[in-house]
């Protein structure tokens, strides 16, 4: 695990914000990853191309950054296989049911000062903090 580096955190965050701003300025769309993926998968949606293109860009990013000599670190997932399946299903269901995820609510929604997104972000952060507290420190269990 790498140490805390505020400069790369702010710079990387700035790029995330830039991508969100550009998607609105160019295509008029919110850069919410769960919404983009959900729409790409939905049977009825007619506008799949830009959604699939965004996802392709996301997956191609490590190759692009690789040109500058950085490689994607092997993702370290502490959870068991069963927990991975449960976690993935909850993330997918919850993000769509709640109208967005870390990007759609946490970045785009808060940038719009949306009360829904501010509430959603506070709730999913507290919920995730509680889960990590129980998993790592066993409070109350």
């Amino acid at each position: 695990m790498t140490a805390f580096d505020p400069v790369s955190a702010l710079f990387g965050g700035g790029l995330i914000g830039l991508a969100s701003a550009l998607l609105m300025l160019l295509n008029g769309r919110i850069a919410g990853v769960s919404g983009i993926l959900g729409g790409a998968l939905a049977m009825s949606a007619a506008d799949k191309i830009w959604r699939l293109a965004f996802i392709a860009g996301l997956i191609a990013a490590p190759i692009f950054i690789g040109l500058f000599g950085h490689s994607l670190p092997e993702p370290q997932m502490p959870a068991s296989w069963l927990l991975i399946v449960i976690a993935g299903a909850l993330v997918g269901f919850g993000a769509r049911y709640g109208g967005g995820c870390t990007s759609g609510h946490g970045v785009c929604g808060i940038a719009r000062l949306s009360a829904r997104s501010i509430a959603a972000t506070a709730i999913f952060m507290l919920s995730a903090i509680a889960v990590v507290a129980i998993m790592r420190h066993g409070f109350g269990v």
Partner: peptide, 22 residues
């Protein structure tokens, strides 16, 4: 409800949709 469920999945795995796809 969606945000609570999403948070549980995020806390169990450390992954949300953007980083998961990437």
């Amino acid at each position: 409800v969606g945000a609570v469920l999403f948070g549980i999945g995020w806390g169990l795995s450390g992954l949300c949709p953007g980083p998961a796809l990437e």
